[in-house]
Design a protein around this nucleic acid. Structure first.
Lengths: 169, 169
DNA sequence: TATTGTTATACTCTATAACTATA
DNA sequence: TATAGTTATAGAGTATAACAATA
């Protein structure tokens, strides 16, 4: 798509970056998802297991924040994982509205078995870049991701940074 | 998740890059999708319209290759676009198995209206990086994406380049 | 026989809104 | 009233397999 588009230099640069970045990330994602689907897991399911594996038991609402999806959606994904007995929900005793989601032994076993291969596959894919290039790419990605989130939180709605709560009331 | 993982230096580097790259691309994608869903389009629908807009009429099979999804899936997405009269299918006269998918005037109008804002939004997001950083990120992304695809096509199935058809029979 | 495309089928994901239980 | 989570509902995406039409 890079052709046919005429705009400012900044527009052309942005579009070029957008295409390259999306294509690269999609390619990586697609390649890596093979290992995951091979174990009968969908990508969201894998993401939830991985999150629980590294962060420990979490409430559904915490999971929905971490995974950036709605509560109802997390409920669905957890239902599917619970059917396969990979996670378990336990009700909290202090606040009985809350629950804690944790890996079952089988769930832990599965993610522990998949994860090293997942990393190895990523290492293999990334080996088309030198170590230095990988580090540069990681750093620029980090700066981009963090920068966007920070900017968004600084100016929740308005396009310019203006004191929003000081506006009309 | 970067914590808690112990592996070789290459593994740690790969996992770090994977997390940063996926997070950045997801953040960009999520931000940009708002404009698209605002027009009642899903991401796959937008992708198909965009592809037809820049490449002209294509067959469903060509679309499924471009978009990296199955033929049946493209059929579904095209059905949904056709319901809204944004694309039209025409049967080829030479090879009557084939068809050509093209934008309707409304489809062209819609994508032409959305696309500039899409680019502008990308430009705005990427402005957290300098122009030089954007170019570096694009170049490394390109190298990564192209490198993976080339490597995969060189060794279609086997992990090592060995004459596959010379194996057992 | 091989190719193009659709149908049939079956899930999973996803969101919004309404609801339950608790605080 | 507000919060945590589920249910209800609806639709879109996705894939595999079977099929039709054509080459």
């Amino acid at each position: 798509m890079p052709t046919h588009f005429s705009g400012s230099a900044a527009d052309v640069r942005a579009l070029n970056l957008l295409i390259k970045l999306m294509r690269a990330s999609m390619t990586v994602k697609t390649q890596l998802s093979r290992a995951v689907t091979g174990h009968g897991l969908t990508e969201p399911q894998f993401g939830v297991l991985e999150t629980l594996y590294f962060l420990g038991p979490l409430s559904p609402s915490a999971l929905s924040h971490k995974r950036l999806s709605s509560g109802a959606n997390i409920t669905t994904v957890l239902d599917n994982l619970e059917k396969r007995e990979l996670v378990r929900r336990e009700q909290s005793e202090e606040d009985r509205r809350c629950s804690r989601v944790q890996l079952t032994p089988e769930g832990r076993r599965l993610i522990a078995r998949i994860f090293p291969g997942h990393v190895a596959a990523a290492r293999e894919l990334f080996s088309v870049l030198t170590a230095a290039e990988q580090e540069t790419l990681a750093e620029l990605s980090r700066k981009l991701g963090v920068g966007i989130v920070e900017r968004a939180s600084r100016a929740p709605k308005a396009p310019r940074r203006a004191a929003q709560s000081a506006g009309r009331k």
